[in-house]
Amino acid sequence: MGMYHGVGGHASVGMLLCPPLGQSLLRTHRLYRQLATGLAAQGVCALRFDYRCSGDSAGDSGSLDWQNCVADIRQAAAELRVRSGCSMVIGFGAQLGGSLALAAAPAAGFAQLILWDPVLDGASHVAELDAWQETLRNDPLHYVRPRSAEEAGGQWLGFPVSLHWRAQVAAWRAAPVRVPTLIVDSLQQPEAGRWSPLAEAGARVVAMRPGTQWGDLHRLEHAILAPDLLRLVVDAAGQPA
């Protein structure tokens, strides 16, 4: 399932908006729509889509597969080229969507990458998600009584997680690609070396404030807002903001 945002005339640049996964996909839906609309208004055509097994696309949430997601990005980039006739496609993604855009960059032929708080170390991300899930099942604002480990097991913040997907995410280690890359950093706590090894390989890092609360258990149903994102992304796409 995808939504294409065309421009009035010819678009030389297109942007593929790769969504994050899990509840972040739902929380950023409105923002991705605003971003696509804003880009189209600036002459950059955009395509939003859901990977198979996520959002409106076919498949169960528990059947996510990393290689399928990468293949979906490649196919979506091809679809964007066909629909728009654009010669240059920029890949954009938030969180795991940024990781997948990075992994798919060579196959999708991205001319540029814009990664918003991408996950670069899958093992750390898995540990973080496990910790959030453990906190969730004991959270008195969600449950009158703590839920058992069995009831809460095999899930990350509302979504079933197969052992296969868990292992694939844990095995992810970002490696630099030969594509100009911008990292939009809106994480709350500064951390030295967070964007390694991309930063060392020449990726530009831009801080965006206020920070984004990706894992706040009490905002799982809240839309993520990022008022400065559109300006940053349009600027990075080389278009007049």
Binding site: Q23, L26, H29, R30, G55, D56, S61, F159, A223
Partner: peptide
């Protein structure tokens, strides 16, 4: 729609 979330629903509840 549930709240302000889009038609997929919280945790993909509407899809399932």
């Amino acid at each position: 729609n549930t709240g302000l979330m889009h038609r997929v629903g919280p945790f993909r509840l509407h899809v399932d």
